[in-house]
């Protein structure tokens, strides 16, 4: 790819990640949620793949870990869902409970659903990056397996 594309892809990565984080945080009072945030962040990484090509993108970014990242995100979301069950409460019950005012950082309320959304965000990010990476170079999968 040409130099301008590469520079642009590089320059766009950080803003996209910030935008994604913003989406995630804003999601509780405005438009946005973990899924959208994950997609935005994935766009940032996929751009690098497109601009630099497979090999260099792999050396620049830990693409190989995306699959584990996705499962980690799913695990985090599930943990938030399951944890209340261990305490004998219904599944997905969130803390602090409705009515109790939570600690606030700016507009973000620190409640357990935020963790759930972070999990969703990681899951989407990992899945999209892994998926598109494998689509671009299907042979890789076989190499990784063997």
């Amino acid at each position: 790819m040409t130099l301008p594309t590469q520079t642009l892809a590089r320059l766009l990565l950080a803003p996209l990640l910030v935008l994604a984080a913003g989406m995630l945080v804003k999601g509780y009072t405005d438009v946005g949620d973990g899924f959208a945030a994950g997609l935005l962040a994935a766009v940032g990484f996929v751009l690098q793949d497109v601009a630099f090509g497979q090999r260099r993108a792999e050396s620049l970014l830990p693409v190989r870990w995306a699959y584990r990242l996705a499962l980690g995100g799913l695990g985090l979301a599930l943990a938030v869902a399951v944890a209340p069950m261990l305490a004998g409460e219904p599944v997905l019950k969130h803390r602090p409970e409705p009515g109790v005012s939570p600690v606030k950082v700016g507009t973000l309320e620190l409640i357990t659903p935020v963790l759930f959304d972070v999990g969703v965000c990681l899951l989407v990010l990992g899945t999209v990056v892994t998926g598109l990476h494998l689509f671009a170079h299907p042979g890789e999968e076989e190499e990784q397996r063997s």
Binding site: L71, L78, M85
Partner: peptide, 17 residues
């Protein structure tokens, strides 16, 4: 809880993936 079998299977699936 009716979700117990579901959650066991789900957590196990993520770990085993």
């Amino acid at each position: 809880s009716p979700v117990l079998p579901l959650m066991i299977a789900w957590v196990a699936a993520v770990v085993l993936a």
